[in-house]
Structure formats: structure tokens, C-alpha cells
Simulated assay, not measured.
Amino acid sequence: MIRYALTRLALLLLGLLVASVLIFLTLRVLPGDVAQLVAGTNSTPDQVDAIRRDLGLDQPLVSQYIDWIGGVLHGDLGTSLLTGSSVTDELLQKAQVTVPLGIFALTIALLFSLPLGVISAMRRSRASGTALNVGSQALAAVPVVWAGMMLVVVFAVWLGWLPAQGFPRSGWSDPAAAIRALILPALTIGIVEGAMLLRFVRSATLQAVGQDYVRTAAAKGLTRDAALIRHGLPNVGLSVITVLGLQVAGIIVGAVVIEQLFTLPGIGRMLVADVSARDLPKVQGELLALTGFVLVVGFVVDLVHRALDPRQREAS
């Protein structure tokens, strides 16, 4: 297990290195001059050149990358060109909205997809199972923006139960208001991601029904459903753990869109604004942090899956 963990950790670090190079180079080929943007439209060529030297943009790309990645290794993701603030500090501040939003969304997705996915598989030949299957297909195809607008119309406009947009200025010092502001965004992401996860759970459960150990348990006196619950669902759980890393990535992508729709002051909304403003040091720090988070989640999922699945340990 230790050797496997060290190997996966090495791959994680290699993935971060490759991602940092791709992020750095991609942002450098975007059109526009950052120094000109900082200097303003009325600046002279000499002023633009001076700003370019101050920002180190006149240095070779290799030197610029080494300077940036050296700061990252010391916990410094860079400094905003427009505000002069620390990217790390701003990320930590915005994460107070995005991280709870992601946790709530993932919880909602798991709470309804796991039981309904199993029920849909166990009752596949009945009307209820068919309805769940068709409903999950329909929800999985719904654009997340449209789903969010429909929830706003129902729960904010018609019923008036929840706020349609915004986040309290006091932040989490008023937990009740903060949670109410995140309910609709989390429901939006959780329902769409949960519908896709429900279909995966249904497929994994149907696959488990056909396994020999489930049929053997049924032949020994257990009902089909009891044999599936007792012997098949642990393997379904392992399969679900495997795809959780992909679900987290989907939630992050959904958060970028949903924070715009609900005007939440999170990382996704900040990233979109910084891309529009061409704040390259800030954007590359944000993208590297998000990429690192997804890779770390995948690393943890792999370790948990290996620890829980004795077949992988025996194979090694």
C-alpha cells in the first residue's frame, strides 16, 4: 500500500507540473498586451515598456515560468496585476463560498442518486423503475443554467422561500443567511450531477445482479433483493467511489456557471472576471489551484478504493 501511495503521489506531482506548464503557456498565447492593459489607453510606449520591465514580461518565458513556479513552491500563487493583492489570500477568501457550495451539491447528489439508482435497478421491470430511468435521463440532459432558472422561478419568485441571488455581506458570521443563499445553487448542481450519478449507480447495480456470488446467495435461500443488498451493494459502493473524482470535477465546472447565475462571490465568478480583465498572474494561480484540487481528490479516491478493495491488494 505504501509503495502504491508513493507511486500515485509521484504521478500527482508530475500531473501538477505538466498542468502548470500548459496553463502558463496557454495564457501567454492569448491576444492582447498585459502591460498595455495595466498602463491604460492613454499611456505612451515608454510607459508601457517600463511596466513590462517591472512585471518581468520582457524576460524569456523560461525565466518567467521559473520565477512563478518557485513562488508556488513557497505557497505564493502570485500577485494580481490590477489590485496588487495576493492570489493566495483571495482564493482562500472566495473558497469560503465555493467549498461549502461544492460540499452541499455533492451531498445532495449522493443523497438522492444512491438510493434511487439502486431502486431503479431492482425494479427495472416495473413502472417505478422505468420512470426513474427516464427521469434520470431527462435530468442529466438539462443544462445547469436552465435548471437554476427554473428553481429560482419556483422557490424564489412563486413561493418566496429562498433568495434568488447574492450572498450575505457578513458572510458566515450569519450562518442561517449564508446557508439559505447556497440552497438553490447547491440544488441546481446537485440535481444535474446526481442524475448522471444515478444512471451510473443503476448500471453498476444491474451488473452486480448478474454476478455469480449474488446468484449463489439467492440459491441458498435469500431473495434476489436481499442477496443484492447484502453481497452486491458493497461492490456498487466501490464503483461509486471510483467516479467521485469525476463528479468533483463536474461540480467545479458547474460552480463556475452557477456562481455567475446566482451572483455568488466565489472562485468561479472571480475566475471569469479575471479572465475578462486579462489578469494573467491571478488567472494562472486560480487555474493551478483548481487543477491541483481535482488531482488531489483523485489521489485520495484512488487510495480509498485500494484500501477498501481487497482484490487490488491481492493482485499487487
Results as ranks from 00 to 15, higher is better:
1 M>L: 11
3 R>C: 03
4 Y>K: 07
5 A>T: 11
10 A>V: 14
16 L>F: 08
16 L>S: 11
21 V>K: 02
21 V>R: 05
24 F>S: 05
26 T>F: 13
27 L>T: 10
29 V>C: 09
30 L>E: 13
32 G>K: 04
35 A>T: 11
36 Q>C: 06
36 Q>E: 15
36 Q>P: 00
38 V>Y: 05
40 G>K: 08
41 T>P: 01
41 T>V: 14
42 N>T: 14
42 N>M: 12
44 T>S: 15
44 T>W: 12
45 P>N: 09
45 P>G: 08
45 P>F: 15
47 Q>L: 14
51 I>D: 00
53 R>P: 13
55 L>H: 08
56 G>V: 10
57 L>A: 07
59 Q>A: 15
60 P>W: 15
60 P>V: 13
61 L>W: 13
63 S>G: 07
65 Y>E: 12
65 Y>A: 09
66 I>Q: 12
73 L>C: 12
74 H>P: 00
74 H>E: 05
74 H>D: 03
78 G>I: 01
80 S>T: 09
81 L>G: 05
82 L>V: 13
85 S>F: 11
87 V>T: 13
92 L>H: 08
92 L>R: 13
97 V>R: 06
98 T>D: 05
101 L>H: 04
101 L>C: 06
102 G>M: 15
102 G>H: 04
104 F>K: 10
106 L>H: 01
107 T>H: 02
109 A>M: 04
110 L>I: 11
112 F>N: 04
112 F>S: 04
113 S>K: 13
115 P>L: 00
115 P>H: 03
121 A>I: 08
123 R>K: 15
123 R>V: 01
125 S>N: 15
131 A>L: 15
134 V>C: 05
136 S>D: 02
136 S>F: 11
137 Q>T: 10
139 L>K: 03
140 A>R: 13
144 V>E: 10
147 A>Q: 12
148 G>N: 06
151 L>F: 12
155 F>R: 14
156 A>G: 10
161 W>S: 08
163 P>N: 03
164 A>N: 12
166 G>K: 09
166 G>V: 08
167 F>V: 06
171 G>A: 09
174 D>I: 05
174 D>V: 08
175 P>L: 09
177 A>E: 15
178 A>D: 11
182 L>A: 08
182 L>K: 03
182 L>R: 06
182 L>F: 04
183 I>S: 04
195 A>H: 03
197 L>N: 00
200 F>V: 14
203 S>L: 07
205 T>H: 05
205 T>F: 03
207 Q>C: 02
210 G>Q: 12
211 Q>V: 00
212 D>G: 04
215 R>D: 11
219 A>H: 04
219 A>M: 14
220 K>R: 15
221 G>E: 00
226 A>E: 07
239 S>W: 00
240 V>S: 01
242 T>D: 12
244 L>H: 05
249 A>S: 15
250 G>Y: 05
252 I>H: 05
253 V>E: 11
254 G>D: 13
259 E>P: 06
264 L>H: 06
265 P>F: 00
265 P>I: 06
266 G>N: 08
270 M>P: 00
270 M>A: 13
271 L>H: 07
272 V>G: 07
273 A>H: 07
274 D>A: 15
277 A>F: 05
283 V>Q: 02
288 L>I: 11
290 L>K: 00
291 T>A: 13
292 G>Y: 02
295 L>P: 02
300 V>D: 01
303 L>K: 10
303 L>D: 01
310 P>F: 06
313 R>F: 02
313 R>V: 14
315 A>P: 02
